[in-house]
Computed example of a mutant assay.
Amino acid sequence: MASMRDIRQRIRVVRNIQKITSAMQMVAAARLKRAQNRVGAARPYAEKMAEVMRHLAGAASGIEHPLLEVREPRRMAVVVITADRGLCGSYNTNIVRTAMELLSEHKDLESVVLPVGRKGPSAFRQRGCTLGATFELPSRDVALADAQAITREVRRLFGSGEIDIAYLVYTRFISALRLQPTVQQLLPLQPPQAAESRLQGVEEYLFEPVPERFLASLLPRYLDVQVYQALVESVASEHGARMTAMRSATDNAAEMIDRLTLSLNRARQAAITREIAEIVGGADALKG
């Protein structure tokens, strides 16, 4: 059985760890609130723009544009948004597993991974994946310029013919306790499904200026918005996962302190009982 000195030392260590995890939980909760506000502000615009672009792509199906070109897939790029730091539970594990499942489904294609966040490159390098350009993920304020740097590289690869299809893997933020790894095709832009078109009807668009110039200016902006939305969602998901993990760690530390305190009390009680027995034994020896 551990001595009382050892148990007190362990209690002090666990209490220090509990203070750290509690502070990290509060910091993550504050950052999560700001990230949630950004998600709520960006999500309606991104979803509406995606809907408009799907309808425009369907209505302008006869228009040729490099970003709308559907080719026989031989080479694939996967943009994976991971966390920038650790201590966020299974967040990184889940998103890397989703990306690896996507790569396994398309194992007949040549693939390149474009990781976003510091945790991505090492994780995919250990799994033998081919890495392309890497990008940093701002953990506080995500700017549109961060998304534009990613989409610029994806458009370059697609336009030069180095890839034929591009996917985006990120974590969609639903709540702090519910995070959904999501796979989304970036390029080429897909028109709406036939069933969806029949339900919603076919809309006719008149383009001014000409459709080629209109889509040429709108498509890059659409990609920027989609990637920006994914970055915002991923940052909120990272903070939510870290807050949940630190809360769990703080609760576990409290339970460990309770168990160690109980062990300390038992050790103290055993020491007192032993001392009393020694005193009584000594008194009996003196009487004898």
Results as ranks from 00 to 15, higher is better:
residue 2 A to Q: 12
residue 2 A to D: 13
residue 3 S to H: 01
residue 5 R to Q: 10
residue 6 D to R: 09
residue 7 I to V: 14
residue 7 I to Y: 04
residue 8 R to M: 05
residue 9 Q to F: 03
residue 12 R to S: 12
residue 18 Q to F: 01
residue 21 T to E: 02
residue 23 A to Y: 04
residue 23 A to G: 11
residue 25 Q to V: 00
residue 26 M to C: 07
residue 28 A to M: 04
residue 29 A to T: 11
residue 30 A to E: 13
residue 31 R to P: 00
residue 37 N to Q: 11
residue 39 V to A: 10
residue 46 A to G: 02
residue 47 E to V: 09
residue 48 K to D: 07
residue 49 M to H: 01
residue 52 V to T: 09
residue 53 M to Q: 01
residue 56 L to G: 02
residue 57 A to N: 07
residue 60 A to G: 05
residue 63 I to Q: 04
residue 64 E to F: 00
residue 68 L to V: 01
residue 68 L to T: 00
residue 70 V to R: 13
residue 74 R to S: 10
residue 83 A to E: 09
residue 84 D to C: 00
residue 85 R to H: 11
residue 90 S to H: 07
residue 93 T to N: 06
residue 100 M to S: 07
residue 101 E to H: 11
residue 101 E to W: 04
residue 102 L to W: 08
residue 102 L to K: 13
residue 105 E to T: 07
residue 106 H to T: 08
residue 109 L to C: 03
residue 109 L to G: 01
residue 112 V to I: 15
residue 112 V to F: 03
residue 114 L to Y: 14
residue 115 P to Y: 12
residue 116 V to S: 08
residue 119 K to G: 00
residue 119 K to H: 07
residue 119 K to N: 12
residue 123 A to R: 14
residue 123 A to C: 06
residue 126 Q to C: 07
residue 134 T to A: 14
residue 135 F to Y: 14
residue 138 P to Y: 10
residue 148 Q to H: 11
residue 150 I to P: 13
residue 153 E to Y: 06
residue 156 R to Y: 09
residue 158 F to Q: 03
residue 162 E to R: 13
residue 164 D to R: 06
residue 165 I to Q: 11
residue 166 A to G: 04
residue 176 A to M: 12
residue 176 A to C: 03
residue 177 L to N: 12
residue 177 L to E: 14
residue 178 R to F: 07
residue 179 L to C: 08
residue 180 Q to W: 05
residue 181 P to E: 07
residue 185 Q to S: 09
residue 188 P to M: 03
residue 190 Q to N: 11
residue 192 P to I: 12
residue 199 L to I: 15
residue 200 Q to S: 14
residue 204 E to G: 02
residue 206 L to R: 10
residue 206 L to P: 02
residue 208 E to T: 08
residue 211 P to T: 03
residue 213 R to N: 09
residue 213 R to H: 09
residue 217 S to R: 12
residue 219 L to A: 05
residue 221 R to E: 09
residue 222 Y to R: 00
residue 230 A to G: 08
residue 233 E to M: 11
residue 235 V to T: 13
residue 238 E to T: 12
residue 244 T to K: 11
residue 245 A to V: 02
residue 249 A to P: 00
residue 252 N to G: 13
residue 252 N to I: 00
residue 253 A to M: 02
residue 254 A to W: 00
residue 254 A to Y: 00
residue 255 E to A: 15
residue 257 I to H: 00
residue 260 L to P: 07
residue 260 L to V: 06
residue 262 L to Y: 00
residue 265 N to Y: 01
residue 266 R to I: 06
residue 271 A to N: 07
residue 271 A to K: 13
residue 275 E to A: 15
residue 280 V to F: 01
residue 280 V to I: 10
residue 283 A to T: 03
